[in-house]
């Protein structure tokens, strides 16, 4: 939708983004610390179950101790998983606006995904610094190399989020299905276990999961081992294609949101 003459939608997006970040924690005493607390509790639980009780084999962890191995993948996973959930929530949550004012609805999705990435990026950065202080070999040069992959992950998440958010307005079943699917994808992504544990033929299938690819690459790059690989380009192209497809579906359906909500 074109902005009125002489204006742009940039400020509206800024409004939505600010709101997305602030709304979750305003009114709570802990404020944005809760954004860190919830992943930290997950980290502690998974580290206990998979690192201590089930004992992930140390030699398959690429030189990381298990909590570090887990933490490096957990925050990027949350960027994806939470973003998808927020993207699906944001259309119903803004029904009152959608039913009365004309604006490009995809801004809501961009804000939901962008805000979630922002919050978890802060958490990730804090955790990486903590890991470094704890003596883990976190390479900040490697983090810079990982940024293009993170951008690709953002594009991929935005595409998936837009697709599911639009689909959900038409088909009420989507929300239920996605809740289940996210759990499956979590375990289909080598977050709580190293990919090496998966038998070879299945491992190749898992590698098709773009999230499996990027979290593995984050671990490689952050350990300071090597630079970009040809596969990175593939993931970026696939992410942009996902984004384009997701936005196409979203834009096809969004003029009808008012009818369907």
């Amino acid at each position: 939708m074109p902005a009125p003459p002489g204006h742009s939608w940039r400020w509206l997006l800024a409004n939505f983004l600010k709101r997305e970040v602030s709304s979750r924690y305003t009114g709570s005493m802990g404020g944005i610390l809760w954004a860190l607390a919830s992943p930290l509790v997950q980290l502690a639980l998974y580290a206990l179950v998979f690192g201590v009780l089930l004992r992930a084999p140390a030699d398959a962890l690429g030189g990381w101790r298990f909590p570090a191995f887990l933490a490096i993948a957990l925050w990027p996973w949350l960027m994806f998983g939470d973003s998808v959930k927020r993207a699906m929530d944001c259309i119903p949550a803004n029904t009152s606006l959608i039913r009365k004012v004309a604006f490009p609805h995809e801004l809501l999705i961009v804000a939901a995904v962008g805000g979630t990435f922002f919050i978890h990026l802060l958490g990730w950065a804090a955790v990486l610094v903590a890991l470094r202080l704890w003596g883990e070999p976190v390479s900040f040069a490697g983090l810079l190399l990982a940024l293009p992959l993170l951008a690709a992950q953002f594009a991929f998440t935005l595409g998936v989020g837009a697709f599911l958010a639009a689909l959900q307005v038409v088909l009420r079943d989507v929300e239920q299905a996605v809740g289940l699917a996210l759990t499956v994808v979590f375990y289909a992504t080598p977050i709580v276990y190293p990919l090496a544990l998966i038998p070879a033929p299945y491992r190749d299938w898992l590698a098709l999961n773009p999230l499996a690819y990027v979290v593995t690459r984050y671990r490689d790059l952050l350990s300071g081992a090597g630079g970009w690989q040809p596969g990175d380009i593939g993931v970026m192209v696939a992410s942009l294609a996902t984004l384009a497809a997701g936005l196409w579906v979203f834009r096809r359906l969004s003029p009808w949101f008012e009818d369907l909500l």
Binding site: W9, W11, A14, R19, S96, L97
Partner: peptide
């Protein structure tokens, strides 16, 4: 109050509605 979000404060809604109308900050 169309263009208002029930969870926003009155002041935030002023900014929101004007952004929805395409005004600059």
């Amino acid at each position: 109050g169309s263009g208002f979000h029930p969870d926003y404060t009155g002041r935030e809604n002023i900014y929101l509605s004007s952004a929805l109308l395409g005004l600059s900050r």
